[in-house]
Design a protein around this nucleic acid. Structure first.
Lengths: 228, 228
DNA sequence: TCATTAATACTCGACTTCGAGTAATTGAGG
DNA sequence: CCTCAATTACTCGAAGTCGAGTATTAATGA
């Protein structure tokens, strides 16, 4: 009954599935796959079984029965407890109502982009843009193949995904344009820095020249250890 | 030298920091914090030290020196190896060029939204919208406080973040509108389902009625176990 | 001057995540 | 009828993640 701090959304998916009817873990996995929830909820066997175990330990689900057919591995069928039912709706409500910061790889990469040179960065971003546009096309294809009358609410998560994809395409396109046109402040310094570095100029001289390049306030250039 | 498959972007951040100059782990953490990279790269001590250890084990970084000042814990200063230098640029390039699916909590929640009733869902989404708009305001405030001349490229990751935030606001606003106007196909069935359930109607009768409600093709309503 | 807070620099272990591996059963093709 | 692939159902251990805890020193202020 310990209040385990489950954070894996897969655990919520398990609760929601058991809200419908009792199931064994393998059936949960096939059901999630059949309903295309795998696109939105990361699913792998190891996690599924350990998540189920931890839900049981915290009293949110319980074993209903344990059936063996022939020589196959035993199937353990689980069902929701009253506590689990409460938890499922509370948890889902919270995920819907409360935005939490999600860390993406691309955001991390952007924040470190200065480590490669600008022309290289542009090239990589163009590759990304290409992939993203292919994804849009693929998605268009899927959408046009969905039978008329299919309830939108059943695939609302894919509309969200699409909204984010379109936003990213826009962002990357703009970024490439700004980088190419040197329209983005700081790119000149960035480029100069890589020129100096590849010419073997030592770090402190690079720092000095960059400081000189930048007109006006340069407080932001300072290092935490060197600031007065 | 083992090719460890590091996936934590924090490891890339470590490589990039050491590309600048040798550092000890604690200094990496303060530097990342000072440069606001914490907003984009999840940082906690446990992960940092274990990531550093695993980078060392795979030969991408190495100990430069180990200094002790007074009775303080020893500071272990690391530096990049040639392999680490190569890895840093290759890894960064890959993160920039290659989109990978990121699983967000909100997307997971949307995919399970059917488990709570529509009116409840609308309420939670309105709460979310409120928070998101507050975030936009806060971000506007920060942006207007940035000193003129501050190079945009140094905070490009926050522009990405903002683009995604704006897209989410749009999406949630539209979704709320569509739900309220019953404009979204499937909402009627969804609402009816929760009415029946809270009236204690058994699952199979609910299924029967929902099938009847939906004109035309209802293949998509079928269960994997019951399809012919 | 003495107490209290902040900063420094890391350690530890509980918990999660991952995905390859296992081992039986069913189905379809030749 | 036999073989080979797919499906069923789960196990296991290595690796990663997390954040509270520890122990010292520096700074602040009553």
């Amino acid at each position: 009954m310990a209040e385990a701090r489950l954070s894996n959304p897969l655990a919520l998916a398990v609760l929601v599935l058991l809200f419908e009817r009792p199931m064994h873990p393998y059936e949960m996995s096939t059901t999630l796959r059949y309903r295309r929830k795998e696109d939105s909820i990361k699913l792998n066997y190891g996690s599924l079984y350990s998540v189920v175990a931890s839900l049981e330990k915290s009293g949110l689900i319980e074993v209903k029965e344990s059936v063996r057919e022939g020589n196959r591995p035993e199937r353990t069928v689980y069902q929701l407890t009253p506590a689990g039912e409460t938890k499922a709706t509370a948890w889902l409500s919270e995920l819907l109502s409360t935005p939490v910061k999600e860390y993406t790889r691309f955001e991390a990469a952007l924040s470190l982009i200065g480590a490669i040179d600008p022309d290289d960065a542009i090239r990589q971003l163009e590759l990304r843009l290409g992939s993203l546009i292919l994804q849009q096309r693929a998605d268009d294809g899927i959408r046009s193949a969905v039978p008329a009358g299919f309830p939108r609410i059943f695939m609302i998560e894919s509309e969200y995904q699409r909204a984010l994809l379109d936003a990213e395409v826009q962002f990357v396109r703009n970024l490439i344009t700004d980088l190419k046109s040197e329209n983005l402040t700081g790119v000149k310094q960035w480029r100069r820095m890589h020129e100096l570095r590849s010419a073997g100029v030592p770090a402190d001289e690079i720092f000095a020249e960059l400081t000189a390049m930048t007109a006006g306030s340069t407080d932001w250039l300072e290092d935490p250890t060197t600031r007065s």
